[in-house]
Simulated assay, not measured.
Amino acid sequence: MKIGFIGCGNMATAIIKGIIRKQIIDAENIIASAKTKATLDRVQKELGVKVSTDNLEVTENSDILVLAVKPQYYPEVIAQIKDVVRKEQIVISIAPGKTLDWLQEQFGGGVRLVRTMPNTPALVGEGMTGACRNEYVTDEDYATVLRILGSFGEVETIPENLMDVCVSVSGSSPAYIYILIEAMADGAVADGMPRAQAYKFAAQSVLGSAKMVLETGKHPGELKDQVCSPGGTTIEAVRVLEEKGFRSSVIEAMKACVRKTRGI
Rank of each mutant, 00 (worst) to 15 (best):
A175P: 06
Q197H: 02
M212S: 09
A12I: 03
A203T: 07
S33H: 12
P230L: 08
T216I: 12
M1P: 00
E243A: 11
E76R: 12
I235W: 09
P174K: 01
I148L: 04
Q197V: 04
R133H: 07
L149P: 00
T53M: 11
A190L: 11
V240E: 09
I20T: 00
D186Y: 09
V206H: 06
F152Q: 01
M212N: 09
L103R: 10
A131C: 14
S62A: 15
Q106W: 01
A32R: 03
P96N: 13
S249P: 06
A38D: 13
V167R: 01
N10R: 12
T59P: 12
V169D: 06
D26S: 05
T116K: 08
Q89R: 08
S52W: 05
F246D: 09
V69H: 09
P220Y: 14
D63T: 09
T120V: 13
V250A: 03
Y73E: 08
K211H: 13
H219P: 04
M117F: 04
S209G: 14
S33V: 07
A32K: 04
C166A: 15
R259V: 14
Y199R: 11
D141I: 04
L67P: 07
D26I: 05
S249Y: 08
K87C: 12
I3H: 02
L149M: 07
L146E: 00
